[in-house]
């Protein structure tokens, strides 16, 4: 479970172009569930997701992960959490161009110094599960949109993270690929993982497997009831 208390995030703090991306957020994200942060562009979804995923620290307020405060931890501890607790799927997937699919999937595990053979087997198993085993050795720039997304998911799960963080994972994907993604999320849930994602795609936040939808507007939680 992740709890945010009075969380504020300012960019360019103290400068003329200071901007409040988040303003006084109080939120509890349940574990063992699928949570979707939704709202229009610029509403602060991605910033909130990056605070939840320990990629940035709030300007004020606190973030607790399973009861432990993580918002005040030094960078090295946050790195440790990103490595072991969270798996990330970025909006543009952010695979490293020029490297093969399997090299990309192995990347998060490299600093842990794993056994090379064991790691490759683990990565291949992930790719197999996501239907990408036959693409393991090709450079990622030759993948289609859906394949790129699945490669990014395989990379996010290589360290067996219990929480998957995904930022707009279905942007620019057609309905078939969106449904395929929802199937993958269902599988992850079946494995007992928590999934937190941002999306303004109704096909995602209205999906039956989503347990919790958090609406945002202008850096705040939108507490008004959505129209039925």
């Amino acid at each position: 479970m992740i709890t945010l208390s009075a969380v504020t995030k300012l960019y360019n703090e103290g400068r003329p172009n200071q901007m409040a991306a988040l303003d006084g957020i109080d939120l509890t994200v349940p574990g063992d569930a699928v949570t979707v942060l939704t709202g229009p562009s610029g509403s602060g979804k991605t910033t909130l997701l990056s605070l939840i995923g320990c990629m940035a620290r709030p300007t004020s307020g606190r973030v607790h992960l399973n009861g432990d405060m993580v918002s005040g931890l030094p960078e090295s501890f946050l790195t440790g959490l990103r490595r072991t607790t969270f798996g990330f799927v970025f909006q543009r997937f952010n695979l490293v161009r020029g490297l093969s699919v399997i090299e990309n999937v192995r990347l998060p595990a490299v600093p842990l110094g794993p056994d090379h053979v064991e790691l490759t087997e683990r990565a291949m198993a992930r790719l197999e599960h996501l239907g990408l085993a036959d693409k393991a050795d090709i450079p990622v720039e030759y993948l289609s949109g859906g394949e790129t997304q699945r490669a990014a998911i395989a990379r996010a799960l290589i360290n067996d993270a219990p929480i998957l963080i995904a930022d707009e994972p279905t942007a620019n994907l057609d309905t078939v690929l969106v449904n395929r993604f929802l199937d993958i999320v269902a599988d992850l849930r079946a494995e007992g993982r928590t999934v937190i994602m941002t999306s303004h795609d109704p096909r995602i936040f209205t999906a039956s497997l989503v347990d919790n939808v958090v609406r945002m507007v202008d850096g705040r939680l939108d507490t008004e009831e959505a129209p039925a």
């Binding site: 020029g98 595990a109 090379h116």
Partner: peptide
């Protein structure tokens, strides 16, 4: 040792990365 394995993994990645800009 884990340290050596880490160095090997880093070197392995570095070689692949260097290969991209041959």
């Amino acid at each position: 040792t884990p340290w050596l394995r880490r160095q090997r993994a880093l070197a392995d990645y570095t070689l692949s990365a260097l290969g991209r800009r041959k």
